[in-house]
């Protein structure tokens, strides 16, 4: 059995009270509870306060570029589809810079788990708006308030073909653990949007704000119904935040559909050597 300590790298440098602390603990705890160890999991970090978890979490990891964690994660999965692969990213990272990758990773049902720290701001660059900021949010880059409406990550993912879409809250670590575990165990693309107060740069979406606006999906909620899932996710547009697995369905993942990977992973395969088969095309 591994322990939290096995996964603990350097001591985090996040601001005191930052939602990242809760998410960081939840990720490690989920990995421990899944009986994984640092050598058995692939993790890709984006760039931002969330991505800075790279030094605090032990794993075979890439600390990637801003926005590019998802395609890196897809690549790791293609190479070794038996290894769980997790992308730890921020809202600007995943919904802004890397938005296109998110859509297409959903479409492909790539078997990776994307954990998004959604705090509505770019913390690491001192608090400019993120794509999830509420309309009118004032920041250094939008002094008169942001004109755009916020992106809805849940409906975007569900509509794009994601087979697991969940939401959690950094203030409820146990809930986050459960969601992360379920996401990693899900075969196919999973998105976990974690609402996270930025205590330094976001004075609107605070712990108090979320405590008033979040609610847990009831036990009898049917997570496999596409239409209800879309309706539930649209509640975010009215600042109501459902917590739990909003949508989950069972479909073959990308690597499930590659006959090349039926028997062995790409990395453990034998070298191809029957070149006559190829040269025939050129005669």
């Amino acid at each position: 059995m591994s322990t939290i300590n096995d996964f603990s790298g350097y001591n985090p440098t996040w601001c005191p009270g930052c939602g990242n602390w809760g998410i960081g603990v939840a990720i490690k705890q989920a990995l421990v509870q899944l009986n994984l160890s640092p050598s058995k999991v692939g993790v890709v970090f984006g760039i931002g306060c969330s991505g800075n978890m790279n030094d605090f979490l032990n794993a075979y990891a890439i600390h990637s570029l801003h926005g590019r964690a998802i395609p890196n994660a897809i690549g790791i999965k293609l190479a070794n589809h038996k290894m769980p692969v997790v992308a730890i990213v921020g809202d600007g990272d995943c919904y802004g810079e890397g938005g296109n990758h998110l859509i297409h990773a959903c479409r492909g049902n790539h078997d990776i788990t994307v954990i998004v720290h959604d705090n509505g701001v770019y913390g690491l660059t001192t608090g400019q708006v993120a794509p999830t900021a509420l309309k009118g949010f004032k920041s250094k880059s939008t002094p008169s308030g942001i004109i755009e409406i916020p992106i809805n990550p849940l409906s975007l993912a569900i509509g794009s073909g994601a087979t697991f879409v969940a939401q959690s809250f950094a203030g409820d670590v146990n809930h986050a653990i459960a969601m992360i575990k379920a996401g990693i165990e899900h075969k196919g693309f999973s998105l976990i949007n974690i609402l996270q107060p930025c205590v330094t740069f976001n004075k609107i979406n605070t712990y108090q704000y979320y405590l008033q606006k979040v609610y847990k999906l009831p036990l009898n909620y049917k997570k496999d119904n596409f239409k209800t899932a879309v309706e539930k996710s649209l509640e975010m547009n009215e600042e109501k935040f459902p917590l739990g697995i909003v949508y989950e369905t069972d479909k073959p993942s990308y690597t499930d559909q590659l006959p090349q990977l039926e028997k062995k992973t790409l990395v453990e395969k034998e070298r191809f050597s029957d070149f006559e088969k190829l040269m025939i095309d050129f005669i």
Binding site: V44, N72, A73, G75, A79, V267
Partner: peptide
Amino acid sequence: ISVINTAIGASFAGV
């Protein structure tokens, strides 16, 4: 962008 980052991920994983 996705093209090269996918390849980087796979190469990291040994392929």
